[in-house]
Design a protein around this nucleic acid. Structure first.
Length: 560
RNA sequence: GGCCCCUUCGUCUAGUCAGGUCCAGGACACCAGGUUUUCAUCCUGGUAACAGGGGUUCGAAUCCCCUAGGGGUCACCA
């Protein structure tokens, strides 16, 4: 397997996820950095799917990864494409389709006695592992398989006896050179004779990754720090197979704000906490079955599936933590902001510069400025960045993007409004939206039928409606008549009419009438600016709602 | 526990490689004041860190050593 020089001179990076679950932010950042590194050097970026674990991998997950990357604005030159096609001359890019390739290299190692069949049972190995742990020692394979004569190993394997193939690790220290972490030498014996082919015939990660990176001409391997120790295995494997060694760079991990490792389990954790807080012993109505609930509660490590998670979160009024790229999309973050913020975790361009796009990242990203320490993921800062980006957006663009978000995640909301209504809402919401989703979460009052609106009595409602020398409900009654006479029910005319009216009836304090009006037409004390709020609803509906509200407030006042 | 790596405000980080311009800068968060018809936004100001201890040096956040703390890894998962 020799490669031409021109081939190797190019920068080639790859992102090689195993397709289980969804792409989480840590993986997304790795992909982003790999992409940026290649793009900034006119190199190629490869997407490879590492599906050698047949139990955990799925095609759906692989597609989900591709969509998540696309959403972030990350494109790749080689690998599977979301439309089902395949790009690149070094495929296949699904490891499960490369078995014959691995096998040919495996044979070379076996023939040269650089690898050997091992017949240990998992029970035997487990026992040795347990013993090592009891002695507080690191477990290392004892090369028991090597005691079997070579001929016998081959014949037993040929006869179909269950076995794995282990790599015969050289008896020498191994030095890893890493562009981020520097140089580290593992003492001899630290890397044992690891498995390179599993009993099911599939290569292990270590073997597949080394073969693929070499055959795909990968020049720079940028991956998570959890792989740092594995690199030693990859280096000795490359030497045995006669492959060139790529440049390595290991990226620090991303943690939760509390310092715990960010994981998919965090969603279950959030719900478990809510279940505990509410002392629930049965699943909430309309969520999951009693059996599912009991087994989930019984096993703290078990996870609910995606739909169950959402149902439970809604029933318990819990906000699930965003972990996956798809979560951030659903929550209404801008992909360019997520990318910007993600790259600030573990990398910075210096000069106090914080806001930049992917093109800038590609141009300036380099390994020397990558942080060695893990970063905690600060959602507040991400939110602040998202707000800034939305505020900086032209009105028309915001309309367009927030509409797209609505069509995707809130179709009922969208179909309930006219285009004019929605544009009004979008314009009124832009400056106060931290995410696209904010608009949909906080304006449910628009969708309700006028008869269905209610006015829960809370402290701010009581204050605005019932307290004071002239209670708000009285002013509201008067303002209602005023509104009846407004011909052009639009923001500007409403503003001039109501401001003038407030000048006379509220001592110039618009708030005195704005708040009662807001509560009357929305059912609560929070909404976009009052004139926009009124205009969106239209004259008829405003008057109907005010009428209903006044009746309720009258009752409350009477019973007080 | 073995091995490897790391350690600047609450958080993300600049500064560390080439010691003085750093009684440590920016951002988010927080606190105080202001603007505002609600919420949010916005404006102004403020609190806040070189993990600890030894060296080296005229001088150390920056170099060396020790201690403490953190992380990764120790699978027929990747």
């Amino acid at each position: 397997m020799s490669h031409s020089h021109s081939d190797r001179d190019d920068v080639v990076t790859r992102f090689a996820p195993s397709p289980s679950g969804d792409l989480h932010v840590g993986g997304a950042r790795t992909a982003l950095f790999c992409w940026a590194f290649a793009r900034g050097r006119r190199g190629r970026f490869v997407l490879r799917i590492e599906d050698t674990d047949r139990k955990r991998s799925s095609d759906a997950a692989a597609l989900g990864f591709q969509k998540a990357l696309r959403w972030m604005g990350i494109d790749w030159d080689e690998g599977p494409m979301p439309d089902g096609s395949i790009c690149g001359d070094h495929g296949p890019y699904m490891q499960s389709q490369r078995l014959a390739i691995y096998e040919s290299h495996m044979e070379r190692l076996l023939e040269a006695d650089l690898a050997y069949h091992a017949f240990d049972t998992s029970e035997e190995l487990d026992a040795k592992r347990t013993a090592a742990r009891a002695e507080k020692k690191a477990y290392r394979y004892d090369r028991a398989g090597l005691a079997i004569p070579r001929e016998e190993r081959f014949s037993r394997a040929a006869a179909g006896e269950s076995h794995v193939v282990r790599f015969r690790t050289p008896d020498a220290p191994i030095t890893i050179t890493d562009e981020v972490l520097g140089e580290a030498t593992l003492p001899q014996g630290e890397v044992d004779d690891f498995v390179i082919r599993k009993a099911d015939g599939f290569p292990t990660y270590h073997f597949a990754v080394v073969v693929d990176d070499a055959l795909m001409n990968v020049s720079h391997v940028l991956r998570a720090q959890e792989h740092f120790n594995n690199t030693a295995k990859h280096i000795v494997l490359q030497a045995a197979l006669g492959f060139e060694q790529p440049v390595y760079g290991h990226l620090s991990l991303i943690f939760n704000p509390d310092g715990s490792k960010m994981s998919k389990r965090d969603k279950d954790k959030a719900i478990r906490a809510a279940v505990k807080a509410a002392s629930l012993e049965t699943p909430p109505e309309g969520t999951i079955t009693r059996e599912a609930f009991d087994s989930w509660i019984g096993d703290k490590k078990s996870q609910l599936d995606h739909d169950a998670l959402i149902l439970m979160a809604e029933a318990l009024d819990v906000t699930l933590p965003e972990i996956n790229v798809a979560d951030f999309e659903r929550s209404g973050y801008l992909p360019e902001v997520l990318c910007n913020f993600l790259s600030l975790n573990g990398w910075s361009p210096g000069n106090d510069l914080e806001k930049f796009d992917n093109a800038f990242l590609a141009e300036h990203f380099d390994l020397t400025r990558v942080q060695k320490t893990p970063a905690r993921f600060d959602r507040d800062k991400l939110l602040a960045f998202n707000l800034d980006a939305i505020q900086a957006m032209p009105e028309a663009l915001f309309r367009e993007r927030v509409r797209a978000h609505g069509m995707r995640f809130h179709p009922d909301f969208m179909s309930a409004l006219t285009t004019e209504q929605f544009d009004l809402l979008a314009d009124a919401s832009r400056e106060r939206s931290k995410t696209f989703d904010d608009l949909f979460k906080s304006n449910g009052w628009l969708l309700l039928a006028d008869e269905a609106l209610t006015w829960p009595i809370s402290k701010p409602v009581r204050k605005a409606m019932l307290k004071g020398e002239v209670p708000g409900r009285i002013l509201l009654e008067q303002a209602s008549e005023l509104l009846q006479g407004v011909e052009v029910f639009e923001g500007e005319s409403l503003e001039s009419t109501l401001t003038a009216w407030a000048e006379v009836h509220c001592e110039g304090n618009l708030g005195k009438i704005a708040q009662p009006l807001r509560i009357a037409v929305t059912g609560g004390p929070v909404s976009p600016p009052i004139f926009d709020t009124l205009a969106m609803l239209g004259k008829e509906r405003c008057l109907a709602r005010i009428k209903g509200c006044l009746a309720v407030m009258q009752d409350v006042a009477n019973s007080a």
